[in-house]
Design a protein around this nucleic acid. Structure first.
Length: 280
DNA sequence: AAGCCGATCAACCGCAATGTT
DNA sequence: CAACATTGCGGTTGATCGGCT
């Protein structure tokens, strides 16, 4: 048995809504409530299918919808939630009062996703794109030096030691995103309002329906890193490196990116226009 | 001025989940 | 419990706009 169509195709208008149609829908819902979407257009005198009416109401006409540009805090929340939830736009929207799933989805695809790519972060896995930065080959060459210790000593005088340590954390991994994801995961048990340290067992991404475990790898990798490198300075943490900062509400996205761009303070070609690489 | 192109976002489509009979 | 109806969701499309040549 085939699916019954959501509406009769004949006589049903499609395309952009007119202000008159909007007003009819608003007036009807104000008086009767949404009720049954299938019969709503007929009762409201609209030549639309119920699905179209529902979408128009939930995504555009609802009085509690917040319109306008996304704030830095909202973008930060979206990025963090997406790293854990994947493309669960309705779930993400549930954490952003006044924003619809459609709006968030559009904003992700048109703004945030592109910015992450430009910043060298994979928007799907939220891992640093070391291939773009060519960090792995740089460090691979470094670590494979026969006289590695002397090279490392020399390098440490040139490079930010935090970067060296971070690199040692990331380099042995097949998938560095696990470190980042694990960290984020811990911070997002109760997003927006509070932070719990309880680790989450797994996270499902909607892109491939694979379920991957985020084991706490930091401790194990620290053992490796400690052999070669001095401890991280107290001001450094992977969260602030990988995610946008949490503590400065007035900060815009550009400034936020500049914050973690500081950690890549090594070896870029002189002709590289860093602003073009990192900015919106 | 006209055409092209990329960005944006409202709206649509198809499927899955859930509810009802 | 099965069949059907309804709702919710995520991916995609297409109209519109502004910038550029």
């Amino acid at each position: 048995m085939g699916r019954s169509p959501c509406c009769d195709k004949n006589g049903v208008k499609k395309g952009p809504w007119t202000t008159e149609e909007d007003q009819k829908l608003i007036d009807y819902i104000r008086f009767h409530g949404p009720g049954n979407w299938r019969i709503l257009p007929k009762n409201a005198g609209l030549q639309r299918c119920g699905k179209s009416c529902r979408l128009r109401w939930t995504n555009y006409l609802r009085p509690d919808i917040k319109r306008g540009r996304f704030s830095f805090e909202e973008e930060e929340t979206i990025i963090q939630l997406h790293s854990v939830m994947g493309n669960k736009w309705s779930a993400i929207a549930g954490r952003l009062p006044g924003r619809t799933d459609n709006e968030i989805k559009n904003h992700w695809n048109t703004h945030i996703r592109k910015r992450l790519v430009r910043s060298g972060i994979d928007p799907v896995t939220h891992s640093p794109r070391l291939d773009l930065l060519d960090l792995s080959s740089l460090l691979g060459a470094l670590f494979n030096q026969p006289n590695f210790s002397s090279v490392a000593t020399h390098a440490s005088s040139l490079l930010n030691p935090d970067v060296l340590r971070l690199a040692s954390l990331l380099f042995p991994l097949q998938n560095p995103s696990q470190v980042y994801a694990s960290n984020l995961d811990q911070n997002l048990q109760t997003p927006v309002t509070s932070v719990s340290s309880q680790p989450q067992a797994e996270c499902t991404t909607s892109t491939n329906n694979e379920t991957s475990s985020f084991e706490p790898m930091n401790a194990r990798l620290d053992d490796v890193a400690d052999v070669f490198l001095p401890p991280l300075s107290e001001s450094f943490d992977l969260d602030s490196f990988m995610s946008t900062p949490k503590s400065s509400p007035q900060q815009n996205s550009l400034e936020a990116e500049a914050n973690y761009s500081n950690y890549f303070d090594f070896g870029f070609p002189e002709n590289l226009i860093f602003d073009d690489f990192m900015s919106i």
